[in-house]
Design a protein around this nucleic acid. Structure first.
Lengths: 214, 214
DNA sequence: GGCTTAAGCGGAACGCTCTTCCGGAACTAT
DNA sequence: ATAGTTCCGGAAGAGCGTTCCGCTTAAGCC
């Protein structure tokens, strides 16, 4: 079991409602699309308040559907989490080129990392679950990192090229580190995360400073 | 609920077996002490292989006792986790003065943090659970940080006094950050954690370098 | 050494949640 | 309007955590 993971290889028409996990060969029925929307909204709310381990019934009730409907559209809980996060992840990835164009490499990198931090922080419970050790979520970090790595990678390369930061830290290393630091602990949450991410960024710069000053 | 924590005010004789959670006013019966030992050993093993969420029965079976016995001695799962970690935590805390005496402040700090990282890394599954969001474990980080904070605090102060590191990061911030970074993700685990902790340490040094070179 | 007391043990019983399944309702196309 | 299919809803099944109680067994006393 836990054979979920990366779906099949299908490359479907693609005109389905965004966020829907199943690759239906045909158009979804109207009520089904509506229910998927309700479920996503409900899941976002419930995940935020009760965490990702919230009872399935709670989500279904809030969405005004039966649990069967939830399980049909999102067989794995990770499918639901994935769908809820997808939009924000895409926005993050797309922000990278814009930042690169508007700032110097080092600043762009720092900016993006803080933006990423903010995104993770607002999702509190969600990001936590990605590293909770539950095998059901094991595939998710990889899935999202795959999307974000090129974005961060280009920022890193640019900053490394100007000598502003060291070059021996990979994009995936950083993505993971920031995600881990965004795990909520007490309440100050986001302030703490941002502080620690700043520390990490300074760590990226440190050896560069050493070389410059020596 | 989750009212476990610091027991009552009782100040018992104190010759009870170390590691036992309950403050029994009297001596524990011999078989009870033996069972507690078996449970701790079993828990350490099971936590290591199956994670902290392993079925209670698995631990009880390995220890050769019934589940009732497990729950009597460790009503909260966090009690078991606490008992398993206690020894290593104490060792970590006690290592601080020795390192401070043997190395320069900055090196002592770095050394201690790496040692702490190593400890957390060897406990993989355990440390994960501390920040899994499960309310059952919420009290644990605080409990341990209380023990470790003075140790790390003195190292931080010493290093800050010599100007080797910045002074605006607290011990508890760092403890938490390192613990988070030690959350296992793939397999490379400890190497990754050490790398990221090194990055954090460099971040602590960065502004100091700036000041020195300017 | 035998007896009394009660601490401690084991596992059955309970409840909760996740997950699956199927009869019936709702939507779409003809 | 009708037929065909998709999709819905909640009831049934299964697993695990936790509690509870009668019996066992160590410890204290005569």
């Amino acid at each position: 079991m836990t054979e979920n993971t990366s779906s099949s290889a299908a490359g479907p028409p693609g005109s389905a409602a965004p966020g829907a996990p199943g690759r239906a060969p045909r158009q979804l029925r109207a009520d089904a699309q509506r229910n998927i929307g309700s479920l996503l909204e409900a899941a976002k709310a419930v995940f935020g308040t009760s965490g990702v381990d919230a009872p399935a019934k709670e989500i279904a009730d809030l969405a005004g559907v039966g649990v069967g409907t939830l399980y049909r559209h999102f067989p794995q809980r990770s499918d639901l989490v994935k769908a809820v996060l997808q939009h924000g992840i895409d926005a993050c990835a797309d922000a990278a080129p814009a930042l690169a164009a508007a700032h110097e490499p080092g600043a762009a990198l720092a900016n993006w990392l803080h933006r990423y931090t903010e995104f993770l922080a607002t999702k509190r419970g969600l990001a936590t679950a990605l590293h909770s050790g539950d095998p059901a979520f094991d595939a998710l970090p990889g899935y999202f990192y795959q999307r974000l790595e090129p974005a961060l990678g280009s920022l890193l390369d640019a900053a490394a090229a100007t000598g502003e930061i060291r070059a021996d830290i990979s994009a995936s290393d950083l993505l993971r580190a920031v995600a881990l630091l965004c795990t909520p602990v007490s309440d100050e949450g986001i302030a703490y995360s941002q502080r620690m991410v700043t520390l990490l960024i300074d760590g990226l710069r440190y050896p560069a400073e050493l070389q410059r000053s020596s």
